[in-house]
Write a protein that binds this DNA or RNA. Structure first.
Length: 570
RNA sequence: GCGCCUGUAGCUCAGGGGAUAGAGCAGCUGCCUUCUAAGCAGCUGGCCGCAGGUUCGAUUCCUGCCAGGCGCGCCA
């Protein structure tokens, strides 16, 4: 990865925070405040421009600790504040005790120049300092089609990993292939029964087997590839389990490939497809159990081995080795996460469905028991999706076999709309997905609203090129004619992209970026409406072309990060 | 019963210890001789679930309650 310069906004903010910390400490000394009573200094961008470019509430926090009048504390803080050599034009006390900082008007033009200079890299920052992070997501059972929740998790996990990468983390996308256990055996059994049906046998298809058509397709394909003779030979294997597992092995591989193709089509690509089976076969479970035992966290009871998770706040202990000697899913998960930590990830993030939410406590117990710092593992719960069509709930019942698959969703609304819609909501929010709205190719659809801004820009720049004009790097003085409020607002928004991305990574909230994209599109449309580019005076025209180009860069980069295309024409 | 998630405009959802609570849709009203009207401007619409507590300040944090969702297996 090419070295990324620290973005201008981060440099300005960092410098101001340093100055404010010094002043805060000086005031805190005078007030006799202990180190713990001193507030963390941070800057926020006020909602209203009249409150400056940055606002700081440190004085109000100091006032609380010292039980003093906030505005008076703000006055002493301002007095102690050395702003020489910074970008600050003036600082004011306002409202209940905010310190509002107003930057020199030229800073926005420098910010604008940076966008063009960084181009495809614009938005990157170094906040993560190369820390190794792993995001594991989707990890669906390879026993059936990917469904709508998987699509939501895929959009979220992929965008989150992208946020990390853009913020200077070394991020890896991982998919855990659950290719063993009872569900896989069930697939093998269902497969075998369908195969027998295809060969003319009359079979009873029991409850608990997978009824979906995809199992029939698997069996058909197996017959085509391996031939009837081979099929009959395998069906003749006497041991039921051994028989099923041959088919399961074939089926799982097919289904995993199918999933991978679906995800490729959705634009989600994993760095690692980690096989549960190979983990188990490597002896990792035994090693993990030995580690737990060494630290005295396990005991035997009723012929099973238990992990004393209650030590770490769980409401009951959990079985890790069943009385039949087989490890539980939890034991495999312990081995798997130990393996993740051993691979050197400082931060491991799992995206899970709400059906596993209750397992979070035991996973945290595991992290502690294995001696890894709290926070090494984070589990984000991705809530269910309800589909609405014509104002009605679309029924999704796995038993009835009528669940809506990820494939059907993408066919229905397209990859861009699906990903954008999923990313408009926080992961933990229960989501109603309006299929009708997502399908609309009109203004009502926020995806198209944002994409339209990009297409509009592309069209404008094409027109400009025809007339012989193109955006080119201009000095600050040449950009200083961009004084219209719509231009100012747009530039400020552009300048915020790196910190928006870093903030989304830090909070694990990629959905902030769809909001950003919508806001950016809005500001561009307003600018477009109030300022003409072509036909303006040459100097103004050239400066505006820079602004248009910068907007295009920011839109393209943020949409790319979200996995949504940025069309040139619509 | 216990645990987790959610409760903000008619609908779907953002936001968040502070300065007038936001967006989209839905409903009304304007704006295309000119770079894409898939756009812009304006209006209407809110006991931020309820009740306490902490605080100079709570819609935001804490507790209780109510409502909805999801879990609670030596399945995954």
């Amino acid at each position: 990865m090419s070295p990324v310069n620290e973005p201008l906004t981060e440099r300005i903010k960092g410098e101001l925070i340093t100055r404010l910390e010094a002043a805060t400490n000086a005031v805190a000394d005078r007030l006799g405040l202990a180190a713990e009573a001193r507030p963390q200094v941070f800057l926020e961008i006020p909602k209203d421009r009249k409150f400056g470019d940055y606002a700081c509430n440190a004085a109000m926090l100091l006032a609380r600790s010292a039980r003093q009048n906030p505005r008076a504390v703000a006055a002493s803080l301002l007095e102690a504040l050395d702003l020489s050599g910074t970008q600050v034009d003036r600082a004011e006390i306002a409202g209940p005790g905010f310190i509002n900082l107003y930057l020199k008007p030229t800073w926005v033009y420098e910010a604008l120049r940076e966008v063009l200079k960084a181009d495809a890299e614009y938005g990157r920052s170094r906040a993560g300092a190369g820390q190794r992070v792993q995001v594991e997501f989707v990890s669906a059972n390879p026993t059936g089609p990917l469904v709508v929740v998987n699509a939501r998790a895929a959009a979220l996990g992929d965008a989150l990993a992208a946020c990390f990468k853009w913020s200077g983390y070394d991020a890896q996308r991982e998919y855990y292939v659950d290719n063993m256990g009872t569900q896989v055996d069930t697939l093998g059994k269902s497969f075998e029964l369908r195969l027998r049906e295809l060969l003319g046998e009359t079979v009873e298809f029991p409850e608990g087997c997978y009824p979906g058509d995809y199992v029939v397709d698997l069996a058909k394909r197996f017959l085509e590839e391996r031939g009837e003779e081979e099929a009959r030979r395998l069906l003749g294997v006497p041991s039921e389990l051994a028989r099923q597992r041959q088919f399961a092995a074939y089926g799982v591989e097919r289904v995993v490939t199918w999933h991978r193709n679906q995800l490729d089509r959705y634009g989600v690509h994993f760095d690692e497809w980690f096989s549960q089976k190979s983990l188990a076969e490597s002896g990792a479970v035994d090693r993990a159990m030995a580690t737990l035992r060494k630290h005295g966290h396990v005991y035997e009871q009723d012929g099973a081995v238990w992990f004393r998770t209650t030590t770490f706040g769980d409401d009951k202990d959990r079985v890790v080795i069943r009385s039949n000697g087989e490890p539980t899913y939890f034991a495999l998960d312990i081995a798997y996460h130990l393996n993740k930590f051993e691979r050197g990830f400082q931060k491991v993030i799992d995206l899970w469905g709400p059906d596993h939410a209750s397992h979070v406590t035991r996973m945290m117990a595991m992290t502690q028991a294995l001696g890894y710092p709290a926070g090494s593992l984070e589990i984000l719960i991705v809530q269910w999706v309800r589909l609405l069509s014509g104002g009605q709930l679309v029924k999704m019942s796995k038993r009835a076999g009528d669940f809506v698959t990820m494939e059907e969703l993408i066919d229905e609304v397209g990859k861009d709309a699906a990903r954008f819609f999923f990313l408009m909501r926080a992961a933990e929010s229960h989501l109603d997905f309006d299929l009708d709205l997502a399908k609309l190719k009109t203004a009502d659809n926020p995806v198209f609203y944002v994409q339209y801004a990009h297409a509009r820009i592309s069209s404008l720049l094409r027109q400009a090129a025809q007339e012989g004009f193109a955006p080119r790097e201009l000095p600050v003085e040449a950009l200083a004619c961009l004084t219209d409020p719509s231009e100012q607002e747009l530039i400020r928004k552009l300048a915020q992209l790196p910190e928006e991305i870093a903030g989304a990574a830090a909070a694990r909230e990629p959905h902030r970026l769809t909001r950003y994209a919508i806001d950016l599109a809005t500001l561009f449309h307003k600018f477009y409406d109030s300022c003409r580019v072509l036909g303006a005076e040459p100097e103004l025209r050239d400066a505006r072309l820079v602004l248009v180009q910068a907007t295009r860069i920011a839109l393209r980069n943020v949409l790319g990060l979200l996995g949504v295309s940025a069309p040139e024409r619509m």
